[in-house]
Amino acid sequence: MTPLFSVRDLRKTYGGRIGCTDVSFDLYPGEVMGIVGESGSGKSTLLNCLAGHLAPDAGQVFYDTRHSGMLDTLRMAEPERRMLGRTDWAFVHQNARDGLRMSVSAGGNVGERLMAVGARHYGQIRAAATDWLGRVEIDAGRIDDRPSAFSGGMQQRLQIARNLVTGPRLVFMDEPTGGLDVSVQARLLDLLRGLVRDMGLSAIIVTHDLAVVRLLADRLMVMKGGHVVESGLTDQVLDDPQHGYTQLLVSSVLQA
């Protein structure tokens, strides 16, 4: 099987400071990879480089495109990368406000990606939005409400619907449950797990919460100081951590 996504020797620095460096990995179709590490370890930097939101200093980010097979997305023309970013890829921000248009109705938020790729039938756009609101457990009666009237958990679910409406194959998530109440987190994780399974999504999930990766991720990368210090199957890494830093990370969770 060929990977869906393949990263080689990625590096991003800020001035002289390392954001992330020497990152290489393959992600296979249907696979969910977690990226864990303490605050400042380079998780968001890496994720943003992978998703094309930040320009890395070096490295390659290959993606198995539907039309032309494996392409280095860093060398794509901008329109092509932008199209990828709104069709085959999705990005879920930690803060729903960064991923939603707060002045646009829930239906408009979900419909935007469809309109961006050429949908021009109002009734069909609205039907798709209604369908997706249902799939993220938002009452269809809220379709014309603005996200500012939604709770934090609903906003996050709306952001997910807005991203998944074009049927992407690869989803990037940065702390998708961060900042939410524990009970709300659990519900969101259940929902995400269901969607990942039902849609056969591949995903890369950044989190500092090991419970999140335990539930969602097939594989793990552990980051420290911009480097990947350990990687492997989730259960393996969490149950038998090899690197001292991972051991610390796991034990601090057990204590908590």
């Binding site: 109705s105 408009g108 419909g111």
Partner: peptide, 17 residues
Amino acid sequence: LQDYGLMHVKLYEDIAR
């Protein structure tokens, strides 16, 4: 980039409202 989906979002909002 002729990235004009947003213009239709505005019209969508009109019809929805």
